Simulated scan of single mutants.
Amino acid sequence: MESDSANRLAVLIDADNAQPTIVEGLMTEIAKYGTASVKRIYGDWTQPSLGGWKKSLLEHSILPMQQFGYTKGKNATDSAMIIDAMDLLYSGNFDGFCIVSSDSDFTRLAARIRESGLTVYGFGERKTPAPFASACDKFIYTEVLRAGEDEPEKITKFSASKLKQDTKLINIIRNAIDASSDDDGWAQLGPVGSNIAKQSPQFDPRNYGYRKLRDLIVATKLFEVQEKRSADGQSKRLQVRDMRRK
Rank of each mutant, 00 (worst) to 15 (best):
G185W: 02
E149N: 13
L145N: 07
D215L: 01
K154G: 13
A231N: 05
A147P: 15
D215R: 03
D178L: 08
G148A: 12
A231G: 02
K198Q: 15
P152G: 03
A219K: 12
Q165I: 11
R126G: 07
K154I: 10
V144C: 09
P131R: 07
I170T: 13
N207H: 07
Q188G: 02
N195P: 03
G148F: 12
Q188N: 05
Q165C: 01
Q165S: 08
I170M: 14
G148K: 14
F158Q: 13
F203I: 14
S194Y: 11
K162F: 01
R211I: 12
E224K: 05
E153M: 10
A135K: 06
A135Y: 11
D204F: 12
R229K: 15
D184C: 05
F203W: 13
D150A: 09
S230M: 07
I173K: 11
Q226M: 01
G185N: 04
A231I: 04
I172H: 06
V225A: 12
E227G: 09
I172E: 07
K212Y: 04
R229S: 14
L189I: 09
K221A: 09
L189F: 05
L118C: 09
W186F: 10
A219I: 04
E125Y: 06
P191D: 00
R206F: 00
R126L: 11
A133V: 06
L145Y: 12
A135Q: 10
P152A: 01
K138F: 02
F123H: 04
K221T: 10
D182W: 10
A179T: 14
I217G: 00
D232A: 06
A130T: 15
A130G: 03
G148I: 10
I217M: 00
Y141V: 06
E143N: 14
V192G: 01
R174V: 05
D215C: 05
V192D: 01
S134W: 11
L163P: 00
Y210H: 13
K168Q: 07
I173M: 13
A133H: 02
Q165D: 10
K154P: 11
F132H: 08
N171W: 03
K157L: 09
V218L: 04
T220E: 00
R214F: 01
R174A: 03
D183S: 09
Y210V: 11
K154L: 15
P201H: 11
G148D: 15
A130E: 08
S181R: 09
A197P: 04
N171R: 08
Q226F: 01
E224N: 13
P152V: 02
K162C: 03
A147F: 07
D215K: 01
L163Y: 02
L189K: 02
R174D: 13
I170D: 13
Y208L: 15
E153Y: 15
K164S: 10
D184Y: 05
Q202I: 15
A197Q: 14
Q199P: 09
K138A: 11
T142Y: 12
S230A: 07
V192T: 01
A160K: 06
S116F: 02
D150F: 06
P191A: 00
